[in-house]
Structures are given as C-alpha cells and as structure tokens.
Nucleic acid binder design. Structure first.
Length: 664
DNA sequence: TGGAAGTCAATACA
DNA sequence: TGTATTGACTTCCA
C-alpha cells in the first residue's frame, strides 16, 4: 500500500516541476482535510512526509507556521512539495483516509474536497531553479534556464539599489532571492554550470537504477505490477536485514522509504505497522485480571531504550496513542486497580507485545537449535507472562532478541494484508467517477434516516466548524455535554429511541440542514467577515427557536468570538482553537485559589476569569487538569514512598514527583 | 449531570 | 529531533 501511495504522491510532485508553492495555502488545505477526515498528525507525518519531517511536533510546526517559499531551504520545500503531492490529489487523500485508524466515516461516503492545483502554486513568486531530482526533465530545464537568466539580470539590476535592511520583508520574494545571491561569492554562471553537471549525473544514476530494478520507471508500471512488486519486495526485505532496493531508490525518483527491520525487535514493529492497530478483544482483556503496570512500564522503557525505538513509533504502532500520551503513560503509570477498562487497554497491549516479543525470541532460538523442547518452553513462558510471572525473563528475552531472523508467520501476515489491500485498490480503480458518485449519493440518502449517520454528520460539522459538543448541547439541543456525548458516540437505532431522544435527533437533522445552507455561503464567500457572520447566523437562527437565556447568550457570544478568532484572513477554513498560554503569574493566582478550594463554584470561576483575563472555560479546564494531575502526582509519591521503604529503589518514580511537586 | 478519565496536539525543553 | 508539559477536548461513569 505504502509504495502505491508514495508513487501517487511522487507522481504529483513530478508534475509540479519547479513551480513555487503557496505554503500558507497548502498548510491551510492540509489542516482542513486532516480535521475534516480525522487524520492524525502522526499518520500524516509518517505517510506523507515520509522521513522528510520525522515527528508529529515538527509537522505541527510546519502546518501552523508555514514559511514563505522563498525563505525555505531545499528540505523545507521538499516538505511542502510532499504535502502538495497529497493535497492536490483526491485519490491520495482517499487512500490516506482508508488507513486512518481514527476515521469516523466510511470512505465511500466521504465527499472529498480537493483544492485546485493552481491555488496551491505561488503565482507571484518567480520559481528559482531548484536543484532537485524532481526537476530532471527537459521541459523543466528550459524553464530553469529562462527563469535563471531572468533572475540573474534582475539581480544585477537590483543588487546596488537594494539595501540589506530590505531583506526582512517576507512578501518581497525578489528581494529575498537577490540578497541571497548577493552574498554568494561564486558567479551565478558557475553555479548554473555546476547545477547542470549535477543534474546530468543524477539523470545518469537514475537511468542505471531503473535498468537495475526492472527496466521501466516505477511511475510507468501498472498498479497490479506495482502491488506485486510491493509484496515481494516487502517479503524479501523483511527477511533480509539490509534491502538493497531500499537504499537504491532513495537516491533516485522515489521518496525515501521507511527503513526495513534490522533486528527482530524492529521486525516485530514492522509487523505491527503493516498489520495496523487491531482492536483489542474482550478475551484478551479478560486474560489479564490484574497487571503490574509499573513493571510493564519498566520493561517497555528498557525495550524502547535498547532498541532505539521512539515513544512516537511505539505509540503509533503498538498502542495507537500519541507521543504525549505514551510519555505520560510511561512516566506515571496508574495502578491497575485505578484504571478503567479503557485505561487498561494500553497496558494490556504492552503486555501482549512483550509476550509476542518473548515468544518470538524463544521460537527463533529453538528453530535455530532445532530444539522442540525450547519451543514448548517458549509457549509455557508466554503463558507465564500471561499470569504475570517470569517478568525478568521477558527483559532478558528482549535483550537477547536483537539480530535474530524473522519467523515466517510475519510474512504470511504481510502477504495477507497486502493481498487484501490490492483487491480493494483494484476494485476502486475499476469504477468510474460517475458510478462512484452515484453510489455515494445512494448510500448517503439511505443513511440519512439513520441515527448513527446523523450523529456522524453532526460530529463532523462540529469538528470542522470548531464547535464543541458542550456548546452544541447548550445552544442547539439543550442537553448536557454528557448527554450530547451519549447521543453522538453511542447512537441507538430509531426504534430503540425514546420520543425525547427522537426529537433530539430531529433537531440535529434540522441543524444539519441549516448548516448546509451556510456552507454554501462559506464556499462562495472569500471574506472573513462574511464567514464569521454566516456562522453567527447559524447560531442565531437556532437560538431564535429556543428560549433565550443569559447562559445561552453567553455561550453564543463565546462561540461568536471563537468563530471570528478561528477565521483566517482568507476566510475559508476555521482554525483549531488557539492554545491559551497561562502565564506564571496567572498560574500562581490559580494555585492560590486551588489551595483553598479545589472545586470552585461558577461564581468563583467567573471572578477568576475576570481578574486574570482568562475565559471561564480556560479557568475551569485548568482546575480540571490540575486536580487530575495533582492526584496522579500524589499517587506516584505514595507509590514511590512505599517502594522506597519496601524495595529500596528510590530511582523509580522520582521524576514523577518532581514534576508535580513543583506545581504544588 | 458533574466530575473524572483519557487523549490529542501545540508548545517547551533538552 | 525526541521527550515532557499542558490547555482543550471527548467520553465514561457514579
């Protein structure tokens, strides 16, 4: 799948040539699609950025503060080219939606809004000849030559006119480039010569490689062929520790591929990655009536450390959680008894992972030695793990699992997975666009009467308009956030609903109708003010039908404020709510109040919000979070004290305390 | 229904 | 670049 996906993205980048990109627009469109289709930044970073940007944090930075094209380095531009390669192509978008574990709607029903390619280009900027492998074609060469000579003459004309101070303006692309050239000691003609020579070299390398890997370029091969190549290449590369193909393609037209496993630990990871995040079964949960969370965390930490696996990777492939959540889990594991079923899930996953790793090691060892007794003992050991015994063994096992070859079952799984995906993709490609559209519409009509479909659409709309469920409950339905959550997260069938609940779904349906009207306004509108007022109208018209209370008015004004804050200058995409930064002074004041009252009433919250110039929502969130984190800290402290006296192991949990001691 | 639990993602920091 | 922190949010549960 990944290879097919990467081919599509690469092809789009090829077609782009050396055009300058409108980074702001690209970031905006990507964010919009991610929000609309519930695609996480981790997933996006992994498949779209494909090693160009490695962490969720870096991607977040790129998306929230896109730098002007002319200010970017080659690597920075590459990141935006990759985003362009995705966001400009409905097929690529649909493919990514397909594998998103957080996807809330069937892909067949999604109406993917793809921005026109032209708006993603930076029409004003003169495209600088990028020394990049993507420019390796003749048409581009001509373009490069033209632009370069124009650029050089402009530069010569301007270099004496421009002061160094002018370089600060991001809007003036010519100035930016001029200043860059001006500080260059090498004559431009010479640079162009070097560039030409390098380009020729790259082309030569590329043609050699294409010959070596199958005489035709990847982008020219048929889908089926590509898929079969993918299967075999994955198979061989899973088995061998260093795939030559992996290394070679990196130098040519393909984007960098993710590294294949070099040891069993990473192989197990690769398997997790390929097979996706399977939901945990009831049986698996029940298999562990009690787990020692501290101990599991300790083993996992050792494992990650020894195998140089990041929290992000582990979170993504094994736990299905973000890096921040993994960090929190590993730093402050809650005791088993205090966890809810949902909270226990990650620990069960970790335990299962440890078991799997353990049995893989034992099996490999046994197979190598031809020792069936060892295989049996591996199974016994795995069972022991299940009963939470032989814990140290698993650490030893993990320590020794480096450099063992993979067992066949991994490839069996891989093959199965890819065959399924291949069938899906084939099926998709045989339908023409009209058929697909018609099918989607039919399905849509059928599902409109469905409560879960209504719930899904409402969630979708709330999400894309930055409206919280709480506000929706307050303003539209007149029910509590918990009530809204029940209605949206666990919709019953129409038959099962009480008359009141049916009424609520009717309200939702009406609200969706109104929103559709507004959406049309939004689409045709380019002004921020119009969007803002259209959102306001939605709420106003809804509120008109309800009793107007003080609380409602307040919520409404907050929502209005939010809507206008969240509206970008271009006016189309509502941004995610800005994260409030609470200053140290504000925190001090909040802590001061917290010491006296951990559960301040509404009046105190309002007073605090006025005094500190924070929203009541922020104040109340702060109290929620502070209570939760205080509790965790206390628990860790108690645990650590207990351990200190029992085990004399002061290192464990020390940091946990430090963190939250500071805030008390 | 309110509060707790769980989580994400922006931001800070090493 | 990876990890830690934390504001904001949804979901769960008593």
């Amino acid at each position: 799948w990944n290879e097919y996906f990467q081919d599509i993205v690469t092809k789009n980048i090829h077609e782009l040539g050396s055009k300058a990109l409108n980074t702001t627009e690209i970031a905006k469109q990507c964010k919009h699609l991610m929000v609309t289709h519930n695609i996480g930044q981790r997933l996006f970073a992994k498949y779209i950025m494909n090693q160009v940007v490695k962490s969720q944090g870096s991607l977040s930075e790129l998306l929230s503060k896109p730098r002007h094209w002319n200010k970017l380095t080659d690597k920075g531009r590459e990141a935006f080219r990759r985003m362009y390669g995705w966001v400009s192509d409905p097929k690529a978008i649909e493919l990514l939606c397909n594998i998103s574990p957080r996807r809330t709607q069937p892909v067949g029903l999604i109406e993917i809004e793809v921005p026109s390619r032209e708006i993603l280009w930076d029409q004003q900027a003169v495209s600088l000849a990028a020394v990049s492998r993507y420019n390796a074609d003749n048409t581009l060469d001509l373009f490069v030559q033209k632009q370069s000579s124009r650029f050089i003459s402009e530069d010569l004309k301007q270099r004496d006119r421009l002061s160094a101070a002018a370089a600060g303006s991001g809007a003036n692309s010519v100035i930016q480039r001029t200043s860059r050239w001006r500080h260059d000691d090498i004559p431009k003609e010479k640079i162009m010569k070097i560039y030409k020579r390098e380009l020729a070299l790259l082309r030569e390398q590329e043609s050699h490689l294409e010959q070596a890997i199958g005489s035709r370029p990847l982008s020219m091969r048929s889908k089926d062929e590509k898929l079969s190549t993918m299967e075999t290449s994955n198979k061989s590369s899973s088995l061998s520790s260093s795939s030559s193909r992996c290394g070679s393609t990196r130098d040519t037209s393909s984007p960098p591929q993710s590294n294949f496993p070099v040891n069993s630990a990473q192989a197990l990871f690769a398997l997790k990655c390929r097979s996706g995040m399977a939901s945990i079964t009831q049986e698996e949960l029940e298999r562990y009536p009690v787990l020692d969370t501290e101990d599991i965390v300790r083993q996992i930490k050792d494992f990650l450390c020894l195998n140089s696996i990041s929290q992000r990777q582990f979170g993504e492939h094994v736990l299905g959680l973000s890096q921040g959540s993994v960090s929190d889990l590993l730093a402050r594991p809650k005791p088993w008894a205090m966890l809810t079923q949902k909270g226990r899930e990650p620990f069960v996953r970790m335990q299962l992972f440890l078991n799997e790793a353990q049995s893989l090691v034992c099996k490999s060892e046994a197979e190598l030695n031809g020792n069936f007794g060892a295989i049996q003992s591996a199974e016994v050991m795995s069972k022991n793990e299940a009963s939470n015994g032989a814990k140290q063994n698993s650490i030893n096992g993990l320590l020794s699992m480096r450099n063992f070859p993979l067992v066949d079952e991994i490839d069996h799984e891989t093959m199965k997975y890819h065959n399924e995906k291949a069938r899906e993709i084939k099926k998709m490609s045989t339908m023409d666009d009209d058929d697909k559209k018609m099918m989607r519409n039919m399905k849509k009509e059928l599902l409109m009467a469905d409560t879960s479909e209504i719930a899904r659409q409402v969630k979708d709309r709330l999400h894309s308009n930055g409206i919280s469920q709480k506000t929706f409950g307050d303003v539209v339905l007149g029910v509590s956030p918990g009530g809204v959550s029940e209605l949206l997260a666990k919709p019953k069938t129409w038959e099962q609903l009480s008359p009141r609940a049916r009424d609520l779904y009717r309200k939702m349906s009406e609200w969706l109708g109104e929103l559709d009207g507004n959406k049309r306004i939004q689409e045709t509108s380019t002004s921020a003010a119009l969007l803002s007022s259209s959102l306001t109208t939605t709420f106003s018209s809804t509120v008109d039908t309800m009793t107007s209370t003080g609380a409602l008015a307040k919520t409404l004004s907050l929502q209005k404020r939010k809507a206008s804050l969240n509206t970008t200058a271009a006016g189309e995409i509502p941004k995610k709510a800005q994260r409030t930064v609470i200053t140290d002074q504000q925190k001090e004041a909040l802590k001061h109040v917290f010491e006296r009252d951990q559960h301040p009433n509404q009046r105190t919250i309002e007073q605090l919000s006025q005094t500190l110039s924070l929203s009541t929502r922020t104040v109340s969130n702060w109290f929620h979070n502070y209570r939760t984190r205080q509790k965790a800290s206390l628990r860790a402290e108690n645990l650590s004290n207990g351990e200190n006296s029992q085990k004399r192991n002061p290192a464990n949990g020390k940091n946990n305390n430090d963190r939250w001691k500071q805030v008390t």
